[in-house]
Amino acid sequence: MNTAQSQHPRHDTQACALSLPPRAGLGLKTEHFKEVLEQRPEIGFFEVHAENYMVAGGPFHHYLGLIRERYPLSLHGVGLSIGGEGPLDREHLDRLAVLIKRYQPQCFSEHLAWSSHGPVFLNDLLPLAYDMPTLRRVCEHIDQVQNHLGRTMLLENPATYLQFQRSTLDETDFLREVIQRSGCGLLLDVSNVYVSCINHQRDPLAYLQALPLQVVGEIHLAGFAEDQDNLGDRLLIDDHGAPVDRAVWNLYQQVLERIGPMATLIERDNRIPTFATLQAEACQAEALLLSAQVQP
């Protein structure tokens, strides 16, 4: 395979890993703004979706500004459409740059997915065909993002429910090649690994072994919903609406045994529980992080 590097300037792929503390964090929800400010809980960091803050002012910015003074911040994008066939939205990139300048987050990440086509924006993160034209396009888009923002981004592995017949690369090979060519880091979503591997009848451990884990800058853990496909096989849906599954916790523990403590986010975007419930899950991750820290 041709592993020629991008001609664009490269960035330090460890920048995010060195900035975010190797602790457990939570996705910051509007329901919990006041509680976080009043109680100042022992949380390693918070993460927000960039698109929720792409306005000039308002209460979201008021509360996030106060919370950012007290906690490290990770900024997670869901709308850049890195894998889209068309050019990146320059106005979206400009708004993202303003947001990053305003809050100086320790990390910025996006998805290996597409969510727009021309003027149409879809409320979903859609899969890609893993072939050389897509590879070149994704690398070009990542170069544009990193050069525009002046920092390294992390690319998140996707949760998928179908595969393209035209794909000529495995997903792990595709990710590894994108990271090598663009110099970006990896946001390892362990839940997505489990969901995709169950859906496509693959071995999650083999998937992990094929990834460049040395460039992981953040880990995501989330819950999923379960259904059946038309053949009656198990089908997992990455809905972020439930506690982290035991199988994902086990997979996460094996990741930590390989790479050591790493900033870990508990995601919950649907059926939001109490802050105490989320904090309990963060504490569970924190215990595993501490255990990984003391391993010889």
Rank of each mutant, 00 (worst) to 15 (best):
W114S: 15
Q209N: 11
S74L: 15
Q106M: 08
D227H: 06
S81F: 00
A56W: 01
D203A: 07
H61E: 11
G183V: 14
Y161L: 03
D229S: 00
D131L: 12
Q7T: 09
S109D: 07
I259C: 15
Q104M: 03
P273S: 11
Q279S: 14
L37V: 09
L28S: 03
Y252T: 03
D227Y: 13
H92P: 10
R166K: 09
P59I: 12
L208A: 09
E267P: 13
P105Y: 01
L251G: 14
P261S: 00
D227R: 15
P296W: 00
Y207L: 04
D173Y: 10
R95V: 05
Q209I: 03
E171D: 06
P261D: 01
R40M: 06
E42N: 08
E91D: 08
L205V: 12
L135Q: 03
E38L: 13
N2D: 13
H141G: 04
D189A: 08
N199M: 01
Q214M: 05
P296S: 10
R90F: 05
K34V: 08
Q144A: 14
H200G: 14
A206K: 11
M132G: 03
I100S: 03
I272Q: 01
H62N: 02
Q146Y: 04
Y103Q: 00
K34R: 04
E281W: 01
E69H: 14
R246S: 15
L66Q: 14
L278D: 06
I100C: 06
R137L: 02
Y207D: 05
V178E: 08
A210C: 10
P158D: 00
I237R: 15
C139G: 14
R137W: 04
I67A: 13
L208P: 01
